[in-house]
C-alpha cells in the first residue's frame, strides 16, 4: 500500500498553484489535508502525476465573515472551523454536523474544502453546504467563478470543477435562527453515513431538509411542515434503489422514514 510516484509542488501563492494546474490539468491533484486522497493513493486507486500541496498558502487560511455568508478558505481544517468562536451563532448547522465528520484525528488535518472537492455522497460537509444553499469559489488562471452548491456536486465524487481549477473557498450562508438539526446513521461511530439528514427550519411552516447517502449526491428539498408525513413518504419512495454492503435500499428508505421526523422535530424544538 504505497502510492505510485508523483511530482510534488508546494506553491506559496494561489497564483502559483493555479499556474501549475494550467500546466498539468487533470493529471494534477490538489493536496490539502489528504485524508481521502492519500488513502486512495496508498490503495493505488488514484494516481495523479502531480500533487499540489496548498496547505501552507497563507491566503487560503481564512475564516471570513462576509455578512450574509461565512467564507472558509481551502486550507482551513475541519477542526479549525469547529473551534471557530462564532460557529454556533453564525453556522449552527455546521456546529451540529462537523462532529460527525470522521474522527478528531482526521478532522485535525482534513479540510472543509477538501471534503467538498471529494464529493462523497454521504459526506456531512457537502450535505450541509447543499442544505444551506451555499456556494463554492473556484479559481483558475482565467479568473474566479462562484458555483452554487446544487450545481457543484454532480454525482458520486463528480463535481463541476474543471481540471484547471482549484477550490479556494466555500461560502456558507449565515443562518442566525437556531432551528437546525443534523443526525446520521452509520455502522460505526465516525464511519461514512448510511444516511445523513440535515434540517433547517424556515419560519413557522417550512423546513429545508437535506439528505445524504441515498443517492449519488445530497438531495435538498423544501417541505411543508403540515404535510410532514406525506412529504417524507414521498421522499422515501422517490429515491432510486441505492444499495451497498451495509444497507439495502429498503433499509435506507425505512431509516429515512424513521429518522427524518426526529431530525425535523429536533430542529423545530431548537427553533422554539
Amino acid at each position: 500500500m504505497k502510492p505510485r510516484p508523483f511530482d510534488y509542488a508546494r506553491p506559496d501563492t494561489i497564483d502559483e498553484a493555479v499556474a501549475l494546474l494550467a500546466e498539468r490539468g487533470d493529471e494534477a491533484r490538489i493536496l490539502a489535508g489528504g485524508q481521502s486522497l492519500m488513502a486512495m493513493m496508498n490503495l493505488r486507486l488514484a494516481d495523479p502525476s502531480m500533487l499540489i500541496d496548498i496547505a501552507r498558502i497563507a491566503e487560503l487560511g481564512h475564516i471570513r465573515d462576509l455578512g450574509d455568508t461565512i467564507e472558509v478558505g481551502a486550507a482551513v481544517t475541519q477542526n479549525r472551523l469547529l473551534a471557530w468562536p462564532d460557529l454556533t451563532a453564525k453556522l449552527p448547522l455546521l456546529a451540529a454536523a462537523l462532529p460527525f465528520v470522521g474522527h478528531f484525528q482526521t478532522r485535525n488535518k482534513g479540510t472543509v474544502c477538501g471534503s467538498i472537492a471529494h464529493a462523497d455522497p454521504s459526506s456531512e460537509i457537502p450535505l450541509s453546504l447543499a442544505t444551506l444553499e451555499g456556494s463554492v469559489v473556484l479559481r483558475s488562471t482565467g479568473g474566479e467563478r462562484v458555483v452554487a452548491a446544487k450545481d457543484f456536486q454532480i454525482d458520486m465524487m463528480t463535481t463541476a470543477r474543471r481540471g484547471d481549477e482549484m477550490i479556494t473557498a466555500v461560502r456558507f450562508p449565515v443562518h442566525t435562527g437556531r432551528g437546525v438539526a443534523f443526525r446520521e446513521v452509520a455502522r460505526r461511530h465516525g464511519d461514512f453515513a448510511i444516511i445523513a439528514i440535515a434540517a433547517v427550519i424556515e419560519g413557522k411552516d417550512f423546513a429545508q431538509i437535506g439528505i445524504g447517502g441515498m443517492a449519488g449526491k445530497p438531495l435538498v428539498q423544501r417541505i411543508v411542515m403540515k404535510e410532514l408525513k406525506s412529504e417524507i413518504e414521498a421522499l422515501a419512495t422517490g429515491f432510486e434503489d441505492y444499495e451497498d454492503l451495509h444497507a439495502s435500499a429498503a433499509l435506507r428508505r425505512d431509516i429515512l422514514r424513521n429518522l427524518a421526523p426526529l431530525v425535523l422535530a429536533e430542529a423545530q424544538a431548537c427553533a422554539a
Binding site: H246, S248, A250, N258
Partner: peptide
C-alpha cells in the same frame, strides 16, 4: 446481526415498523 439483516428479518416476520 447487522441492521441490514435485522431489517430483513423483521420485514419477513410481520413488518419493520
Amino acid at each position: 446481526a447487522t441492521p441490514r439483516r435485522i431489517h430483513a428479518l423483521m420485514a419477513s416476520n410481520g413488518g419493520v415498523r
